[in-house]
């Protein structure tokens, strides 16, 4: 149903046999451990915005996919308020290859779409945690691939584009 293309970082490195063409970029997202009494895995969305304008493109969104009933997991997607405004509010979810379940603290690598026109982009990652905080991290990058890295302070760790 929501067969996401998200792979843990380690196996991807192991699969380094494939010659990486210039466009096959990926983004690695770190969800930090937060030591609080009541912890819930954050909702996290990643999208890219062309610097010169144009519509945003959602690359992944992790939320409580399975929760249905009177208060479905989709109810809190609007808490990812920047992503919601930049495209989340027009998406049909679940979306194949884009939506997935929430992730435990750790690092996750997600491929960036290979068919991006050459140019300058900003990759944005937003995390919102129930009874917790919300954070937005922006990483500028360009196609053909020139990576970058930025770190969040509370809800997100290092975001790296390779």
């Amino acid at each position: 149903m929501t067969s996401s293309k998200i792979l843990p970082a380690m196996p991807l490195l192991a699969a380094g046999l494939v010659a990486t063409p210039a466009l096959a970029a990926s983004v690695t997202i770190t969800i930090p451990q937060v030591k609080v009494a009541e912890y819930h895995r954050p909702y996290v969305a990643g999208w890219l915005e062309p610097v010169g304008g144009g519509s945003a493109r959602t690359v992944f969104v992790w939320y409580d996919v399975k929760k249905g009933g009177r208060e479905p997991g989709t109810k809190w997607l609007a808490d990812l308020r920047s992503w919601w405004r930049k495209g989340g509010n027009t998406m049909k979810l679940p979306a194949n290859g884009v939506s997935g379940a929430t992730r435990a603290p750790g690092s996750y690598t997600v491929p960036i779409p290979a068919n991006l026109p050459a140019g300058q982009y900003v990759f944005k990652v937003e995390a919102a945690r129930e009874t917790g905080g919300r954070e937005l991290v922006s990483v500028p990058f360009s196609v053909p691939a020139k990576g970058g890295s930025a770190s969040g302070k509370t809800e997100l760790g290092t975001i790296t584009i390779r």
Binding site: R70, P72, T74, K75, L77, A78, R81, N89
Partner: peptide, 10 residues
């Protein structure tokens, strides 16, 4: 209470 809602069951 809010101006932005996700979904139409709210």
């Amino acid at each position: 209470s809010t101006t932005t809602l996700a979904g139409t069951s709210e």
